[in-house]
């Protein structure tokens, strides 16, 4: 009894399903709809992609978008983590800040766009700010949650071993202990930030960028290009998430192997 059946249901199946979808897509676009504006075909999209790579446009777009995203995420990290740490460790800070956060948090990040423009003008910082607003709250909230979940015995063991003051306990116990929760928060923040990217670039902070180009090509009715940029946003988002998970699980959280997530 060799498990011959399993070879059929094995690896190739995801590739086959992808191929089938592409063929159906091409068929529908070419023979049923026949209008590039409504549904560009797979080959339209491929040639549009080849075009933006050949002209080099894509690289400027990638760079611009990564600058926006990086600015927003970086600001969210260096502001969100310290706030989360202070709230999670000191009860009175939590009491003081928590109501403020609960009021500001439900405001959709995109609602901040007018203020972003008023405060920062049509600049990269303005786009970064919108992404920051989307990314900072998941980081704060998960940092606080991580700190609340620190087993008391770790703190007490550290105290007995001579790690006495708040600074020492935060650095050597609280932060490493809540790292899984903080990392999960950063992951969520990256997802939210990425989603804000298109909107953040929509109002003309730059003349390139993945999100900007979606609108630009839409105004030109080049839906094949719109679709290319949509797909790039999707794949790049996936890639960023994968790289982050690989780095965090492999390096920072390797002590957690064997823990079922």
């Amino acid at each position: 009894m060799n498990h011959q059946k399993s070879t059929f249901s094995g690896k190739g199946i995801d590739l086959i399903s992808l191929l089938v979808v592409i063929i159906i897509w091409q068929f529908i676009a070419d023979f049923l709809i026949q209008r590039k504006l409504i549904l560009p075909s797979f080959t339209d999209v491929v040639s549009a992609f080849v075009n933006i790579v050949q002209t080099g446009v894509i690289f400027m777009d990638l760079l611009t978008s990564l600058v926006h995203f990086g600015l927003g995420l970086f600001a969210a990290l260096i502001i969100g983590i310290p706030i989360g740490v202070a709230m999670g460790w000191f009860k009175y800070v939590n009491k003081a800040i928590d109501p403020l956060i609960e009021v500001v948090r439900p405001i959709p990040p995109l609602a901040w766009i007018p203020f972003a423009i008023v405060w920062f003008g049509l600049t990269n910082i303005s786009a970064g700010f919108v992404i920051f607003v989307g990314a900072v709250f998941p980081i704060i909230i998960n940092t606080v949650a991580g700190f609340k979940g620190i087993p008391r015995v770790y703190v007490e063991a550290a105290k007995v071993l001579g790690c006495m003051n708040d600074r020492c306990l935060i650095r050597h116990v609280a932060l490493p202990s809540s790292m899984p929760s903080i990392a999960a928060g950063i992951r969520i923040a990256m997802g939210v930030g990425w989603m804000c990217l298109v909107a953040a670039e929509m109002f003309g902070v730059s003349s390139s960028g993945l999100g900007y180009k979606i609108w630009w090509h839409y105004y030109l009715h080049q839906m094949d290009y719109v679709l290319v940029y949509m797909l790039i946003l999707g794949f790049l988002g996936l890639l960023i998430d994968r790289v982050f998970r690989w780095y965090v699980d492999g390096k920072i959280l390797k002590w957690r192997k064997g823990v079922v997530v």
């Binding site: 087993p151 015995v153 770790y154 007490e156 063991a157 550290a158 007995v160 071993l161 116990v173 490493p176 202990s177 790292m179 002590w255 957690r256």
Partner: peptide, 12 residues
């Protein structure tokens, strides 16, 4: 020094 009843080693 103190040894606790629960496992108190720092898992990280």
């Amino acid at each position: 020094g103190m040894v606790f009843q629960e496992y108190s080693l720092f898992p990280w």
